[in-house]
């Protein structure tokens, strides 16, 4: 494949395409390679999604002007075509159906998010059921139960924390993408 015929911009492995917190209304279509959507939290990086050829990101910037809420980095070499905001708006004015693919992609992400949310709710129900069962066990003295309850609560807290984090990040990545 000749480098001379590749469209867009080439990003090296780990190079940042979109920076969290920055204001920009450009959206992108991946022409080749992969990119990851990441969220930085106190030095640690959580990967929220991996996107590949043909995927669109940054399309929420078409609908609102909020700062980018996640960072997008190249995974290996990635070729990315930027879509200019003002030109796109003018084209959408002539042909509103141009926005359909973006809306379809967004609705797909909302569906995925719903599935994750339901699974998170199930885990929480499961945990609270276990607690109730423990409480119902009459022959166990509260004092004996204390260490068990504490471990369970800590685990539950941890689980809840990761689930809410995931949800919030997914939501933000949706806003970002």
């Amino acid at each position: 494949m000749s480098e001379d015929s590749l469209l867009g911009r080439l990003y090296k492995d780990g190079e940042t395409i979109v920076e969290e917190g920055m204001l920009s209304r450009t959206m992108y279509v991946i022409q080749g390679g992969k990119v990851k959507v990441v969220k930085n939290d106190k030095g640690s990086e959580t990967v929220l999604a991996l996107l590949g050829e043909g995927d669109i990101f940054g399309e929420m910037s078409l609908f609102d002007a909020s700062p980018r809420s996640a960072t997008i980095k190249a995974v290996g070499e990635a070729r990315v075509l930027a879509i200019e905001y003002e030109g796109l708006l003018k084209r959408i004015k002539v042909d509103p159906t141009l926005a359909l693919r973006m809306i379809k992609q967004m609705s797909q992400r909302i569906r995925d998010l719903n599935v994750r949310l339901i699974s998170a709710q199930r885990t929480m129900h499961h945990a609270s059921d276990s607690l109730l069962q423990l409480k119902k066990a009459e022959d166990v003295r509260i004092k004996d139960l204390e260490p068990n309850i504490i471990t369970l609560i800590t685990r539950l807290q941890e689980k809840l924390h990761t689930i809410t984090e995931q949800y919030v990040h997914q939501d933000e990545s949706l806003r970002e993408d």
């Binding site: 279509v29 043909g54 669109i56 075509l81 141009l98 693919r101």
Partner: peptide, 10 residues
């Protein structure tokens, strides 16, 4: 080029 990419034609 941009419009086609948005239409899924790269």
């Amino acid at each position: 080029v941009q419009t086609l990419a948005l239409e899924g034609i790269n």
